[in-house]
Amino acid sequence: MGMTLYLKHASQIDLARYAREGVEGEDLGVLVEAGFADRHAARLKELELLYVADEGRAAFSTTAREMLFDHLDLLRRRGSGRMRVSSPSEPVLDLHGAWRMLHFLFTGDAFEGALPAATLLAGGREVGEDLGYGPPRMLSIDETAAFSRFLEALDLDALAGRLDARAMKSLGYHCGEEAELRAELARYFPRLKAFVAAAAARRQGMLIWML
Rank of each mutant, 00 (worst) to 15 (best):
R43V: 03
F195D: 03
R84T: 06
T4W: 04
L5V: 04
L120V: 01
F104V: 01
R187Q: 13
P91W: 06
L192G: 04
H174F: 10
A179S: 14
R43D: 05
S61V: 01
R203T: 13
V85F: 15
V32M: 14
P190C: 02
M101A: 04
L74R: 12
R17A: 08
A153R: 15
T62G: 04
G161T: 02
A42F: 08
E24K: 13
F147Q: 06
E55I: 00
E178I: 09
H103I: 01
A16C: 04
K169C: 03
E184V: 04
G25A: 12
Q204D: 13
L93F: 00
S80R: 15
T144Y: 08
G97Q: 13
D27M: 05
S170M: 13
P116W: 06
R39E: 10
L207M: 08
L95F: 10
A200D: 01
S61R: 13
G134A: 05
L75D: 01
F147M: 11
E126H: 07
M101T: 10
A145L: 12
E33I: 10
L121R: 06
L185T: 03
G25M: 11
A199C: 10
D130L: 11
E48H: 08
L121V: 07
E129P: 11
P88W: 00
G2M: 03
G81R: 12
E126L: 04
L102P: 06
A183T: 12
V30F: 05
E129H: 12
S140F: 03
L120C: 07
A160F: 01
P91F: 02
E66A: 11
R182A: 07
A53G: 10
F189D: 02
R82E: 15
A110L: 11
A19D: 09
G79W: 09
L181E: 09
M1R: 13
E21M: 07
L151V: 05
L102Q: 09
T62R: 14
E46T: 13
G81C: 08
K193C: 03
L75V: 09
D14L: 05
A194Q: 14
I208T: 09
L7T: 01
R65I: 00
H174Y: 11
Y18W: 05
W209N: 02
V92H: 04
A122I: 01
R191G: 05
A59V: 00
M101V: 11
E143M: 07
G2N: 14
R84E: 13
V196F: 03
L171R: 10
G132I: 00
R65V: 01
L15P: 06
A183Y: 00
G29C: 04
H103M: 08
K193I: 00
A197C: 05
A146V: 03
A98Y: 03
E112F: 10
S89G: 14
M210R: 15
L139Q: 02
W99S: 09
E152Y: 02
G123R: 03
L95D: 02
L192T: 03
L159R: 06
E66G: 08
E180K: 11
A165Y: 10
H174S: 13
E46R: 15
A64E: 14
A179L: 12
E21T: 07
G97K: 14
T4I: 11
A10T: 06
H174M: 09
S87F: 02
R84A: 08
R20N: 12
P91N: 08
A167R: 15
F69I: 00
E24N: 08
A186Q: 14
A158T: 11
Q12T: 13
L72M: 12
T62W: 11
S170C: 02
G25E: 11
L156P: 06
R20E: 14
G108F: 12
L93R: 06
